[in-house]
Amino acid sequence: MPEPVILLDDLTKEFPTDPPVRALSAINLRVERSDYVAVVGPSGSGKSTLLNMLGLLDRPTSGSYRLDGIETTMLKDSARTTVRGSRIGFVFQSFHLLPHRSVLENVMLAEVYGRGSRKGRRERALRALERVRLSHRVEFLPGRMSGGERQRAAIARALMGEPALLLCDEPTGNLDSKNTDAVLDLFDELRAQGMTIVVITHENEVSERAARRVRITDGTLAEE
């Protein structure tokens, strides 16, 4: 049996305030390859903390997190950065596209910090843009595109380098319903192609499209 993409074992995160805040308490989660999981919960429930843990942006206080078979809690900062860059594709609510760079350059940015060769980077970026159906916007600046198009460009960037996990933080938070549908359709397609997707959201419309829903309340996780 292949390794799951995400395997959380009693993952706990405490913030050293006075008194200490336990944002995540002993969370267990298993996400298999080409799963499509939505993490839902009200604000303040620990959603963002979980996202930071899953994205290797922050370290847990205790517990274990195996990403794609790699135990990440023991890794040093630089190794975590490498794993983050190579295995995780991020999609943010606010897109995080560089405003002065064309769509193509923004997508190509995903490979800048990897070990891969520069050769063929442009072609790979064009293919990624094709996957999100943005081939007609290649040389546009992000500021001249609609929100949906921008989020699709960001997804294309996340798809570069074939990550094991697509980690989305409120991907439709800044989009109208039409664009939201387009992005969710895209997720369905990607999942059909075998991509593992974790979406963190508070919108029912988004979570209902996911194959699996996980609710987080006061730092604890429950399947729905």
Binding site: S78, T81, R84, S86, I88, F92, H96, L109, Y113, G114
Partner: peptide, 16 residues
């Protein structure tokens, strides 16, 4: 700051 965060998310090490 946001750009720095993005770059870190894309795999940029501190030295980068």
């Amino acid at each position: 700051i946001a750009e720095i965060g993005l770059r870190r998310a894309l795999g940029a090490a501190r030295r980068h």
